[in-house]
Computed example of a mutant assay.
Amino acid sequence: MAGIRLPPEDIDISQARALSTADLISDDDRSIAADSWSIKSDYGSTLDDDQRHADASEALAAARFCAASDYSSDKEEADAETFTFTSMLGYQSYWDATYADELTNFREHGDAGEVWFGADVMEMVASWTKGLCIDISQRQLQNQHNDLDDDSVSESVSQDLAGWSVVDVGTGNGLLLQELAKQGFSDLTGTDYSEGAINLARSLANRDGFTGIKLLVDDVLETKLDKKFELVMDKGTLDAIGLHQDGPIKRIMYWESISRLVAPGGLLVITSSNNTKEELVQEVENFNQRKIGEVEEEEEEGKGGLLWYLDHIRSYPTFMFGGSVGSRVATVAFCFR
């Protein structure tokens, strides 16, 4: 639950640590994972107990996370004040098993599976992101062509939007890409390290008429993509990475890898339920400091190739708890330059 950190209640640290791979795909473990981190979607679920998902954001609030800048990997001396909360959702085995079930359920019943954060958040992210891209395109056009009238600018922006290269990392069932397609984007790619997720996303795209979406099996932490994109989307992937036993180190790998996917002047839009806007901005500042340090060590000139905060969604519902105001979701955009 982004925005508020509550003290842990009745948390067994030994249970919070990652289980072995063999344990990850049992029915009991899926239940534990769903209790640990999940938000019920409006699209239906393949899991048996819907209430687990309704309560999932509360489970997040009950966990105390290590600060984004604390990259200690000493698991043996963790205590109730410093341990990093882990979950089955940080492991590929969980997602492979989940998407195998969801693909079977799609074939038998036509269900699209889980939409993490809910359909309303997904639609808001797509619409808000479109607005950011339009603003950027309009400024660029007006700077290049001062003599264009409003109608010409609008037509050119629409054409430009369709040409934006977009990748959604950890795309899952690919429904965010479909929402972006509805907003006018057409150069769309989705990646996921689970082959089952890609098979489900491809099946849904074909069924819903979005056959132009490209879908690839790829791990963002070890990406094989050699292309840079003008718009990089992440809805929940950083969250899942952070729930791995080695989450703090994997988060460093995440920023290094995902920054290489963003084209100069491009955007990175992250939607998270585990991090506030301020925490995401702090992680980006940490990334920038590491990159600047690398440049200085190599005695190179300039400090390009950094991520900078651009904007965030301000219209998510908020709630009050213990005198603090927070929201369950944060969506933050960064510009790469």
Rank of each mutant, 00 (worst) to 15 (best):
residue 170 G to V: 03
residue 235 K to H: 05
residue 232 V to D: 00
residue 224 K to A: 13
residue 194 S to V: 11
residue 240 A to K: 04
residue 136 I to S: 02
residue 175 L to A: 15
residue 151 D to F: 09
residue 141 L to Q: 05
residue 170 G to S: 12
residue 183 Q to S: 07
residue 223 T to D: 10
residue 207 R to T: 09
residue 220 V to L: 06
residue 251 R to F: 06
residue 137 S to P: 00
residue 141 L to C: 04
residue 170 G to Q: 02
residue 232 V to H: 00
residue 179 E to V: 02
residue 132 L to C: 07
residue 165 S to H: 05
residue 212 G to S: 06
residue 183 Q to F: 03
residue 246 D to F: 07
residue 209 G to D: 15
residue 257 S to E: 02
residue 214 K to T: 10
residue 168 D to W: 00
residue 151 D to P: 04
residue 194 S to P: 04
residue 178 Q to M: 05
residue 152 S to W: 14
residue 264 P to A: 11
residue 139 R to Y: 06
residue 237 T to G: 04
residue 190 G to I: 04
residue 216 L to V: 13
residue 233 M to K: 00
residue 204 L to W: 01
residue 157 V to P: 00
residue 154 S to P: 01
residue 158 S to A: 09
residue 134 I to Q: 07
residue 245 Q to E: 09
residue 243 L to E: 04
residue 199 N to R: 10
residue 238 L to N: 13
residue 149 D to F: 13
residue 145 H to G: 03
residue 180 L to F: 11
residue 178 Q to I: 13
residue 169 V to E: 01
residue 170 G to F: 04
residue 194 S to K: 07
residue 198 I to T: 03
residue 171 T to S: 12
residue 156 S to C: 11
residue 167 V to W: 07
residue 170 G to M: 03
residue 258 I to M: 05
residue 140 Q to V: 14
residue 249 I to Q: 14
residue 206 N to T: 10
residue 198 I to C: 15
